[in-house]
Nucleic acid binder design. Sequence first.
DNA 1: TAGATTGTTAATCGATTAACAATC
DNA 2: TAGATTGTTAATCGATTAACAATC
Lengths: 222, 222
Amino acid sequence: MVEVIEEFDAAGAFPVEGERLSLGVAARLSRYLQVLTQARKMGRETISSQELSEYTHINPTQIRRDLSGFGKFGKRGVGYNVDSLVSEIRKILRTSGQHNIALFGAGNLGQAIATSSIFADHGFQVVAVFDSDPSVVGNPIGELTVRDIGDLPAVVSEEEIVVGVLAVPAEAAQDVADRLVKAGVKIIFNYSEQLLQVPPEVTVHTSSPAVDLLYALYFYLA
Amino acid sequence: MVEVIEEFDAAGAFPVEGERLSLGVAARLSRYLQVLTQARKMGRETISSQELSEYTHINPTQIRRDLSGFGKFGKRGVGYNVDSLVSEIRKILRTSGQHNIALFGAGNLGQAIATSSIFADHGFQVVAVFDSDPSVVGNPIGELTVRDIGDLPAVVSEEEIVVGVLAVPAEAAQDVADRLVKAGVKIIFNYSEQLLQVPPEVTVHTSSPAVDLLYALYFYLA
DNA sequence: TAGATTGTTAATCGATTAACAATC
DNA sequence: TAGATTGTTAATCGATTAACAATC
């Protein structure tokens, strides 16, 4: 009748190697990675939890705590080595590899995404661009050629697409989402304001700059 | 020597009218607003905490709890009236008004932002577009004309700009941020991957779609 | 009435923070 | 050595959740 309520690795305060990260930890590690990636581009060799805190708005103690759960990555009096911390976090997030993206919509937003390094810096590569407008199919976009949306099922399996990015008008978003679901893609990044209906095993992230602004504005006005 | 440790309104569990919202509550209310705004566009009259939960990934009990702290907005057995909940939340966030934005960069991303309704739906209006390239200054973009970045100080005070949105290349971002700070703008929305140095009273939000993807991917792979 | 969904409680869990010894 | 910054503890605070009476 007595349950074992403590494990030897104890407390639950520290993530255990091999176990699934909590939502919060995974989100924060991703933020650190974003800042570290950029800091590396700027030629920084080390960074302190204090500096990471300034860019992420996450408390420095929280940062040290998050990292120390996985190893002793820092050097006292110095900080963290940017390069090695990037690879440690990538290992923890199991996203060291390259992942392929399909982009939908070859308008202004689609072109901006296809030619930006914002995804590439994090190991995501746009390998196909689709549009439903026959008049733009065949046009070049970055190093790719715009394809017809009918090719989607073939491309998903050939190119191992894991993410679909929607840069289409709100009216078209649900249709593309349906096609992605049918093709077996489980992660959708939605730049339109459309609320998407998807089965429970599919994750939708909707970009919402205006929401972030509302939030910032509240603290500005209050 | 005995401190008063309880107030009559008690518990801290419920936000008190007039007090500053916690970061978490403000962020969640903004999310609800985003979904409600879109639901209204789609002609929905009522929505349940369950449905709000599906779109925001926030627990339905948490949603009811957040809302009930400010009033009894729902109807048992029915849900929340979309229209009235939108205006209640706007009142709480004190963002019922119209707020003016200056956009920087008239490239693909800038054009996409200027012509999208994603900001307008939430009471943000792009009232000026700037570019540092003299060859695009004077060009039309949506209903606006691209202006020279030198006009910024005048425009900020004339148009009461509260937010600057950066859709410029990473190399140009810090310069624009410096100009915004000098002109007195306190909220910057950064679409570039550049880490921005700003004084403590200025808030920077950096858009990071790749970070969201990393995070989604972790839970997909794990 | 029967079904649905809110408003609210109470219990638990994870996040946050200050503080500081360890150590580079 | 002196200064800086990590790793870690312990205490507190807010978020999360299940459960259910109230009531539309």
